[in-house]
Computed example of a mutant assay.
Amino acid sequence: MFLSPLDATADGAFCVCKPGLPDAMMQKAIDYACGKGADCTQTMQNGPCYSSQKTLVCNYIVNSYYQKNGPIGGTCDFGGVATLTSTDPSTANCKFGSGPR
Score class of each variant (00 low, 15 high):
F14C: 06
A29S: 05
C49Q: 08
Q27C: 09
V16M: 05
L3T: 02
Q27H: 14
Y66C: 08
Y50E: 15
C34Y: 02
T83Q: 13
D77N: 06
Q67C: 11
G35E: 09
D77M: 00
N59H: 03
C58Q: 00
V81R: 00
L84H: 02
C49Y: 01
C94I: 01
G79C: 00
D31L: 14
S52P: 13
K54H: 07
G97T: 14
R101T: 15
G47T: 08
F78V: 06
G80D: 06
T87D: 09
T85G: 12
T87S: 05
Q27R: 14
L84C: 02
C40V: 02
G35V: 09
M1K: 12
G97L: 13
I30K: 09
T9L: 11
P48Y: 11
N63S: 02
D11K: 15
T91G: 10
Y32P: 15
N46W: 03
N63Y: 01
Q27W: 12
F96I: 00
G73M: 06
D88E: 00
C17I: 03
T55Y: 01
Q27G: 04
K28M: 05
D39I: 06
P71W: 01
C58L: 02
N63Q: 03
C58T: 07
N69K: 15
K95Y: 08
V57Y: 07
T85A: 05
V16S: 00
T43M: 01
G35Y: 00
S4M: 08
T83P: 01
S90D: 07
D31E: 08
I30W: 00
F96N: 00
A92N: 07
F96C: 06
Y65D: 10
A29N: 01
